[in-house]
C-alpha cells in the first residue's frame, strides 16, 4: 500500500492556491509492448479523469515508470515539484487545486461513490492481477513476454519472477490466490451486476461524469479491448451492455482522435 505522510499532505494543501500548470506530465509504461492489463486499466482511468476535469497533461512513456512512481504503482503525474501517483491521490490533488467532479454531490452520494470505487479496486483489480499473473496460460503467453520486454536477459526473467512473487503474496493475503478461474469470473460477474444496476439507463453514475465513471471506463475499456488467451473475463464484462456503452460513450467523448 502506498504511504502518505502528514508532511506530504500539508505540502500538498499549502500548494492548493497555485493553479494547474500547463506542463503536467503523466508517466506510464510503454503502451504497445510493455504495459499489463491492471496497469493499463489504472492509467486509462487517470487519463479519463484528467480529461473529464479538462486539465491539460501530456503522456510520457517510460520503461521504469513503475520504479519512478513514489508508490511503486503506475501511473503518476508530475505537477511542478510534486509527484502524485494513482487515481485517488490524484483526485485529491486536483480537488486541492479547486478542480473536482463531485462537488455538487451530497455526502451520501459521495459515500456511495467511494463504496463503488473500492468495490472495483477489490474485485476488478484483483481479477485482472489474477488473470495476468496466476492464470498459467495468460502468464506464459502474454505477461511474461511483456513484463520482461524492456530488460536484457536474464534481468527480465529475474524481474518477472520477483514481481510474480509479489503479486502472489498480495493475492494470497486477500484470499484470492486459491480461487479457481470460475470463482474469479463469478466475482467479476457479481461486481459488474451491481455496477450496472446502479448505472441503470443513465448516461453516468451520478448524472454527470465523476471519478467513478473514469475508473469504470478504465477497467471496462481495457478488459474488452485487450486480447488475452483467457476470453472469460472480457466475455463476462461484455454481457453487461450498459457498462460497455458507458465505456464507449466516454471513449467517444474524451478520447476521440481528430
Amino acid at each position: 500500500m502506498p504511504e502518505y505522510s502528514l508532511k506530504d499532505s500539508i505540502i500538498t494543501s499549502l500548494n492548493a492556491q497555485e493553479p494547474w500548470p500547463d506542463n503536467v506530465m503523466l508517466f506510464q509504461p510503454y503502451e504497445v509492448e510493455q504495459i499489463l492489463l491492471p496497469d493499463n486499466a489504472s492509467c486509462l482511468a487517470v487519463q479519463a479523469f484528467l480529461k473529464m476535469c479538462n486539465l491539460p497533461f501530456e503522456v510520457e512513456m517510460r520503461w521504469n515508470a513503475e520504479f519512478m512512481s513514489p508508490s511503486g504503482r503506475v501511473p503518476f503525474i508530475k505537477c511542478g515539484a510534486f509527484v502524485v501517483s494513482e487515481l485517488e491521490p490524484i483526485v485529491q490533488f486536483a480537488a486541492n487545486k479547486g478542480v473536482s467532479l463531485c462537488s455538487r454531490l451530497s455526502s451520501e452520494e459521495k459515500a456511495e461513490m467511494r463504496a463503488y470505487m473500492s468495490l472495483i479496486t477489490n474485485v476488478l483489480v484483483n481479477a485482472e492481477l489474477y488473470i495476468s499473473w496466476i492464470h498459467e496460460e495468460t502468464f506464459n503467453s502474454v505477461t511474461k513476454t511483456r513484463n520482461s520486454s524492456v530488460y536484457p536477459w536474464p534481468l527480465g526473467w529475474i524481474q518477472t519472477r520477483s514481481k510474480r512473487n509479489a503479486v502472489t503474496k498480495r493475492l494470497k493475503a486477500l484470499h484470492w490466490h486459491d480461487k479457481t478461474l470460475d470463482q474469479v469470473l463469478a466475482d467479476v460477474e457479481q461486481c459488474c451486476k451491481s455496477l450496472s444496476q446502479r448505472l441503470g439507463d443513465r448516461d453516468y453514475f451520478f448524472g454527470s461524469p465523476t471519478e467513478l465513471d473514469a475508473l469504470v471506463f478504465g477497467h471496462v475499456f481495457t478488459i474488452i479491448t485487450t486480447r488475452l488467451p483467457c476470453r472469460g473475463l472480457a466475455e463476462t464484462v461484455l454481457r453487461h451492455s450498459s457498462l460497455v456503452s458507458l465505456a464507449k460513450r466516454i471513449d467517444e467523448k474524451y478520447f476521440k482522435r481528430p
Binding site: R62, N64, F67, M68, V83, Y151, P152, P154, L155, Q159
Partner: peptide
C-alpha cells in the same frame, strides 16, 4: 534522480 531509478543490469 527519480528518472534514473529502476533495475539495471
Amino acid at each position: 534522480v527519480r528518472e534514473s531509478s529502476g533495475p539495471q543490469m
